[in-house]
């Protein structure tokens, strides 16, 4: 069982979906997180318009990841979801709120401030809940007889609250970097100003998580700090430092698009760090991708559909963003 390649392929596919989701919905949620700091109605319109044509497609990746998990790793789907029940339900409800607010905000005048509130509140709650879920999964939970065996509030931990806040910072950074790309003038200046502090805060959060996890999990400590692993793996933190410095440089040089790409790079490194810490464990502490796999024929059957669809969705996504390239100006965009 342990040498079957199919589960690895599925792990990579679902990882790709999650990564796409974090980057794409991350910046749209980030816009909502930054909403409280921008009071002017006309600026808020612009901010919304920088995501309006693409945000709904971004959520595609969350469903693609979730449904893929159900079909390819039913054990993971059937244990992570009940273990993280309350934060996940909260996230779903918040995402619904955020989505509907997004659509109807443009179709309203008098009630617009309510939709602003729902949009921003939905984004903040959804992001925090996602961070809590992330922390909960990293912390691991009890599984017996292939079912979740913990309690209602096992997902709750100081670490989870911390990852929740860290994700708020992270998405706010993605949002700010995106807005730097898509806006200009005074509004853009504001986002330029907050990219650096947000980057430094995120780096601090990543540092704390990188110290916290090996301290609380011997296996992770062993994987990172054991010789010779440490030589190869030390490239990850080195790259993080290099990227941080280049983000600061790009801000000074006003390389707007490069900043966003570098921020995405930071997120990628974070994900790579998690994979290094856990692979091939899918459900911490010890259930591997091979333990959690569905039947071989299920994974093959599903792979056929994914192989056809994934390139289409990727191409469509790229095409949408290309059409939407350039700055969003006041009074332009969706009515």
């Amino acid at each position: 069982m342990g040498n079957d390649i199919l589960p690895v392929v599925w792990f990579a596919l679902i990882g790709l979906a999650i990564m796409m989701y974090i980057i794409l919905d991350g910046f749209s949620l980030g816009i909502g997180i930054l909403f409280p700091f921008v009071k002017e109605g006309k600026y808020r319109d612009i901010m919304m318009n920088t995501a309006a044509p693409v945000w709904d497609g971004n959520q595609t990746w969350m469903i693609l990841g979730g449904a893929g998990l159900y079909g390819a790793f039913p054990l993971a789907y059937a244990t992570i979801l009940p273990a993280m029940y309350l934060p996940l339900i909260l996230m779903l409800l918040a995402l619904i709120f955020r989505g509907i607010a997004f659509e109807f905000r443009f179709k309203s005048n008098r009630s617009r401030k309510w939709f602003d509130f729902a949009f921003s509140g939905g984004a903040i709650v959804a992001t925090f809940a996602q961070g809590v879920v992330l922390g909960g999964i990293i912390g691991g939970f009890q599984v017996e007889n292939r079912q979740y065996a913990g309690n209602t509030f096992d997902w709750f931990s100081i670490f989870g609250l911390f990852t929740g806040i860290a994700l708020l910072v992270g998405y706010a950074l993605l949002g700010a970097a995106w807005l730097v790309v898509k806006t200009e003038g005074n509004l853009q200046k504001r986002f330029y100003r907050i990219v650096r502090p947000l980057t430094l805060l995120l780096i601090l959060a990543m540092l704390i998580i990188s110290i916290w996890t090996p301290l609380s999990n011997d296996r992770i400590a062993d994987r990172w700090f054991n010789f010779p692993n440490i030589i190869g793996l030390s490239i990850v933190p080195i790259l993080v430092v290099v990227l941080t410095l280049s983000i600061i440089r790009s801000i000074a040089k006003r390389h707007e698009k490069l900043i966003f790409i570098q921020v995405v790079g930071l997120f990628l490194l974070g994900l790579i760090g998690l994979v290094i810490s856990f692979f091939p464990v899918l459900i911490p502490p010890d259930i591997t991708i091979w333990d959690a796999s569905s039947h071989r024929s299920s994974q093959i059957f599903l792979l056929v559909g994914y192989s056809i669809l994934l390139p289409i969705v990727l191409a469509y996504t790229a095409y949408s963003y290309w059409i939407f390239r350039g700055k969003v100006r006041e009074g332009e965009g969706y009515h």
């Binding site: 449904a67 159900y70 079909g71 789907y77 059937a78 979801l81 009940p82 779903l92 299920s298």
Partner: peptide, 24 residues
Amino acid sequence: AYEFGTNWSGFAERAGDITGVLLT
């Protein structure tokens, strides 16, 4: 898409090889 896992994990785990694929 999430409710089978959150609320019906016994079903999702035991029948996911079949129903998970069809749902996806």
